[in-house]
Amino acid sequence: MSLDKDQVQRIAVLARLRLADDEFGETVDKLSRIVDFVDQLGQAATDNVVPMAHPLDEAQRLRVDEVTESDSRDAIQENAPLVENGLYLVPKVIE
């Protein structure tokens, strides 16, 4: 196994994912296999190869910084699990 349970737990915290207890064994096993699989990239000779930034070598397009959208807060918040007075509600973050 290239990854152990502690490493997978650390990755899960970084990714903000809670894994159920019965998911752990399988996740460690399968993630290890994926990491072993992609490790073969290490064999490739890539000295002086420029990493790809865009498949067609296009640069990011710029646009004028001006308002183009109208206010659609209400429509957007229709999908929010919990809102009040146009604000998203979350658990208390400051004591």
Partner: peptide, 25 residues
């Protein structure tokens, strides 16, 4: 319990096993 728990459990419950593996990879 708190914001961290909200993130982790919402994502842990909302995503299936393969999506979680890809995110973690």
């Amino acid at each position: 319990d708190d914001l961290f728990d909200l993130y982790c459990r919402s994502r842990g419950e909302g995503f299936g096993a393969e999506v979680k593996r890809r995110i973690m990879t």
